[in-house]
Simulated scan of single mutants.
Amino acid sequence: MQPPHAFPSFTGIRAVTLDLDDTLWPIWPTIARAERVLLEWMHAHAPATAQALQDTTAVRAVRTEIVQLRPDLAHDLSALRRESIRLALGRAGDDTALAETAFDVFFAERQRVDLFDDALPALEFLASRWPLVALSNGTADVHAVGLGRFFHASVSAHLVGVAKPDPRIFALAAEAAGVPAASVLHVGDDARLDACAARDAGMHAVWLNRGGVDWPHEGAVPPATVASLAQLCQELAKG
């Protein structure tokens, strides 16, 4: 692992933007559970489709095909999921009109998340000091997951039409916070989509590296890096 870099003081920060999936909670256990609930629903309402989607390989194959067929939906994970369901229903001979209800079943379960242990204390710390804006390519709703009280605003790719690393979504988040991009600190787990993209958009950035992996981008100077949200708060508290 690369040696840690000195944590900057970040003077002049007037707002914080925060990634959600894999920053506040692990996303893949959430998705896996939501897909299981969806499959159970399909066994009752679209049995042929349920049979066709028994294993994750088949599910991923349908998803990959939709991504290729609908590049216009690349920013909208909800639409991609809905159209994947529609495609699977049609191919299995089930009623494609069930896609909307089936997606609602998946989406409701997707909002049930298991927070990392340091998430709530970090949200309390950050929200008490700065306007906090959720900034995500995913489809989690901070109000639906029970965290809305901490956030000044929420900017989601599927709602605004662009996704990270596009600088426009960072600009929208800064606008939602009511401050210039240069006065925003962005925190997220993805080295490219969060750390590099935020800096390219004119923000400050902290890379949340829970796994202790090496900085993956040769030629790009690593940002300030923390192993946990608890460490982030400790560093920011130093001023």
Results as ranks from 00 to 15, higher is better:
Ala171Asp: 13
Val142Trp: 01
His5Ile: 12
Arg81Gln: 14
Leu69Gln: 15
Thr11Ile: 08
Lys238Trp: 11
Leu135Gln: 09
Ala34Gln: 03
Arg60Leu: 14
Glu100Asn: 09
Thr64Cys: 13
Ala182Val: 13
His152Phe: 07
Phe116Ser: 11
Glu235Thr: 05
Pro222Asp: 13
Val37Thr: 13
Ala220Ile: 15
Arg14Met: 12
Ala119Pro: 06
His204Val: 02
Ala102Gln: 08
Glu109Cys: 14
Phe125Met: 07
Arg63Asp: 13
Leu159Asn: 04
Val16Asp: 00
Ala74Glu: 11
Ala122Phe: 01
Ala195Asp: 11
Val221Thr: 13
Ser128Met: 07
His75Cys: 08
Pro167Gly: 03
His143Thr: 14
Leu123Trp: 02
Leu159Val: 13
Phe107Leu: 14
Ser78Met: 02
Gly188Ser: 04
Leu89His: 08
Arg82Val: 01
Asp194Glu: 06
Pro8Leu: 10
Ala144Ser: 12
Asp194Arg: 00
Pro29Met: 11
Leu69His: 14
Val213Met: 12
Val155Asn: 10
Ala32Gly: 01
Asp76Gly: 02
Pro4Lys: 07
Arg63Val: 00
Ala153Ile: 06
Arg70Pro: 00
Pro222Glu: 11
Asp141Met: 09
Arg14Glu: 15
Phe116Trp: 10
Arg129Cys: 02
Cys196Trp: 03
Gly212Arg: 10
Ala79Thr: 11
Met42Ala: 12
Val184Asn: 10
Arg199Leu: 10
Ala237Thr: 11
Glu175Lys: 13
Leu193Gln: 13
Ala74Arg: 12
Arg33Leu: 11
Ala195Cys: 12
Ile27Met: 12
Leu123Cys: 06
Leu135Val: 08
Arg129Asn: 06
Arg210Ser: 05
Leu73Met: 14
Cys196Tyr: 00
Gly202Cys: 10
Arg129Ser: 04
Leu38Gly: 02
Ala153Asn: 06
Gly202His: 06
Ala32Glu: 14
Ala102Cys: 09
His43Trp: 11
Gln51Asp: 14
Asp190Val: 01
Pro131Ser: 07
Lys238Phe: 02
Glu100Thr: 12
Leu159Pro: 01
Leu123Thr: 08
Asn209Leu: 00
Met42Arg: 10
Leu38Ala: 11
Pro4His: 02
Ala171Trp: 01
Gly90Arg: 12
Ala102Asp: 08
Lys164Leu: 00
Arg112Ile: 07
Ala44Asn: 06
Leu73Cys: 15
Ala52Phe: 08
Gln231Tyr: 09
Ile13Phe: 03
Cys233Ile: 07
